[in-house]
């Protein structure tokens, strides 16, 4: 009968279809691995910087250099307080997190800002402004010694840190800031170059004036109330020795004995002070023929004066003192 097997041929092909579909399903396992090539992913996360960029520094001079170079393009600040020395300041956790989130953190180098050893900052955002002249960092001879464990006594030595008191080093630090800013904001590099040039001119001017003023003092014995003028002294070739006296601090007889001993072989006429010495100390010095001169180290900003203004004030005080000395030998 015709109708009997109407569906049989269909059934057959349907069976074949089932087999084929399912088998095809398992076969497709192959060759998929090669499709796993993910398109080349950029290795650096996209740096979309929001203007003004946020720059934090570890002291005031770097803040000054950076804000002069960046102008309106960056919001530059040093979060420490004016009355604590940035070298020994410790940021709060919140401050540290601000540093972590900054677009750029400017470091001084030479082991300055001890807190950096104890806090975590991303490497990527850091610029060690003094790294380029690492070879010229001055190794401090004085050291702190302590002992623990079976190794016995050991010594901490470090570098002198006030790099910025040498205008030539300040120029190098500013140069490092300029090139980093230009790399971060290449479209503004002309502005940075221009600002940088102006700053360098002013620093060069300061340097040449200081050089002229101190030309006669080359290799002359000078004293410093604290070992903070190493780079300044080196730049202008002063024969500088330091004691550890604090401004405003009264001195005991042992301190004066120590000084008298030094003076025997180091007959200095001037002593550089970070701040005004106590009156008794000043008169004691004058008795010994030494003129105390305040030469601020400007690690923080004082009285709203900027770095250059403070340096010129330092210059003026030096000039006044040296000239006075010339008139009354």
């Amino acid at each position: 009968m015709k109708s009997k097997n109407t569906f049989s041929p269909y059934l057959h092909s349907l069976g074949v279809l089932v087999t084929a579909t399912l088998l095809a399903g398992c076969g497709s396992d192959k060759n998929e691995n090669s499709a796993g090539n993910i398109s080349e992913t950029s290795s650096t996360p996209s740096q979309s910087l929001e203007l003004p960029i946020k720059i934090l520094t570890v002291n005031y001079p770097l803040e000054f250099f950076a804000s002069r170079i960046a102008g309106e393009l960056a919001d530059v600040s040093y979060p420490g307080t004016a009355n604590s020395d940035p070298a020994y300041w410790t940021p709060s956790t919140e401050d540290a997190q601000q540093y972590q989130q900054a677009d750029l953190v400017l470091l001084n180098g030479a082991g300055y800002a001890q807190w950096l050893d104890k806090f975590s900052l991303p490497r990527k955002n850091q610029l060690n402004t003094g790294a380029a002249f690492r070879e010229q960092w001055i190794q401090e001879t004085e050291s702190v010694t302590h002992s623990h464990g079976p190794d016995g006594e050991h010594t901490h030595t470090g570098f002198a840190t006030t790099l910025w008191l040498d205008p030539m080093q300040a120029i190098q630090q500013a140069g490092a800031i300029r090139s980093t800013l230009s790399r971060m904001l290449p479209e503004s590099s002309r502005t940075f170059d221009q600002n940088h040039r102006e700053l360098i001119e002013e620093l060069n001017h300061l340097d040449s004036e200081l050089g002229n003023l101190l030309a006669e003092q080359i290799n002359e014995p000078w004293l410093a109330s604290h070992p903070v003028y190493q780079y300044f002294g080196r730049r202008y070739e002063l024969n500088l020795r330091s004691v550890h006296w604090e401004p405003g601090q009264e001195l005991g007889s042992s301190d004066w004995e120590e000084l008298d001993q030094i003076l025997e072989e180091h007959p200095a006429k001037w002593m550089l002070w970070e701040g005004e010495p106590a009156e008794t100390v000043a008169s004691g010095l004058k008795d010994r023929g030494i003129t105390p001169v305040v030469f601020e180290i400007i690690s923080t900003q004082s009285d709203g004066k900027d770095y250059l203004e403070s340096m010129w004030e330092n210059f003026n005080r030096l000039q006044t003192s040296i000239n006075k000395n010339k008139k009354s030998p």
Binding site: P45, T93, A96, Q97, Q100, D117, K118, F119, S120, K124
Partner: peptide, 17 residues
């Protein structure tokens, strides 16, 4: 963390020693 695109779900990244 920034390189790996890792984010913090609670707290913050390490700050001090």
């Amino acid at each position: 963390f920034s390189q790996r695109g890792l984010s913090i779900t609670k707290g913050a990244l390490f700050v001090t020693l």
